[in-house]
C-alpha cells in the first residue's frame, strides 16, 4: 500500500458518499445517471467475486464490502425509493454498447483465461467507460449541480491517483499490470474535459455548463 493508492481509495469513497448523501438529503436523483450506477454495481460485483476465494487484508475486504453495499444502495435509491425523480428522458445512453464490447475484449485480452480472471478483466474495461452515461447526461442537460460536479471530480481523481500508484509500484516493486494501467488511463482521460471545466468554472463558484 502507498499514499497514492490510499488517497485514491479515499477519493473513491468520498465520491460515493457525496452521491449517496446528495440523493438521500435532497430525496431526489435528478441529474444522476442511474445507468452509470448500474454499471458501477456490475463493475464491483464482477471484480470482487474473489472475496470468496482470496484474502488480501482486512482493509481490502472491508472496502470491497463498502463499495458493493453503497453501489447497490445508490441503485435502490434511484430506481426504487426516489424513482419518481429519476430523469428517464436524459439518461438514455445505450449501456449495452459498453457492456458487450467490454466483455468481448475481456475474452480476447486477459492475463489468464479462467472465469474469475476474465470477469476481473471485464470489470476493469467496463469501469473505464462506466461514467459515460453520466457525462452524456450532463452534456444533454447542459449543466450539472455543483454537488454532482464535486462527485465527478472525486470519482475522476480516484483513478488518476491510481495511475500515480502504478508508477510508484513500478518504480519501487517493479510491479505493473498493463490491463489495469491502460484502462485506468482511458478512464482518466474521459474526465479531462470535465476536470478542465470543473477547475475553471465550478471552483470559481460558477455553474458547470457543458457544451451540449
Amino acid at each position: 500500500m502507498n499514499i497514492f493508492r490510499l488517497t485514491g481509495d479515499l477519493a473513491h469513497l468520498i465520491a460515493i458518499i457525496i452521491l449517496l448523501h446528495k440523493i438521500w438529503k435532497s430525496r431526489s436523483c435528478a441529474g444522476i445517471s442511474g445507468k452509470s450506477q448500474v454499471l458501477f454495481a456490475l463493475v464491483y460485483t464482477t471484480r470482487y467475486l474473489d472475496l470468496v476465494t482470496s484474502y488480501v487484508s482486512i482493509y481490502n475486504t472491508f472496502m470491497k464490502f463498502v463499495f458493493l453495499a453503497t453501489s447497490y444502495a445508490t441503485i435502490y435509491l434511484i430506481y426504487v425509493k426516489f424513482k419518481a425523480t429519476y430523469d428517464h428522458n436524459h439518461d438514455t445512453f445505450r449501456i449495452e454498447f459498453l457492456i458487450l464490447p467490454s466483455l468481448a475484449l475481456a475474452l480476447l485480452i486477459n492475463h489468464y483465461f479462467n472465469f474469475l480472471e476474465v470477469l476481473w478483466t471485464f470489470s476493469i474495461y467496463l469501469e473505464s467507460v462506466a461514467i459515460l452515461p453520466q457525462l452524456f447526461m450532463v452534456s444533454k442537460t447542459g449543466e450539472a449541480e455543483s454537488i454532482t460536479s464535486h462527485y465527478l471530480f472525486a470519482l475522476g481523481s480516484y483513478r488518476a491517483l491510481y495511475i500515480l500508484n502504478w508508477i510508484y509500484r513500478y518504480a519501487t516493486e517493479g510491479h505493473y499490470d498493463l490491463i489495469a494501467i491502460v484502462a485506468g488511463v482511458v478512464q482518466t482521460v474521459l474526465y479531462c474535459d470535465f476536470f478542465y471545466l470543473y477547475i475553471t468554472k465550478v471552483l470559481k463558484g460558477k455553474k458547470l455548463q457543458l457544451p451540449a
Binding site: 481509495d9 472496502m63 480472471e117
Partner: peptide
C-alpha cells in the same frame, strides 16, 4: 506459472 493472479488493488 500459477493460473490465478492475486489482485491486491481495489
Amino acid at each position: 506459472h500459477e493460473e490465478t493472479i492475486l489482485h491486491d488493488e481495489l
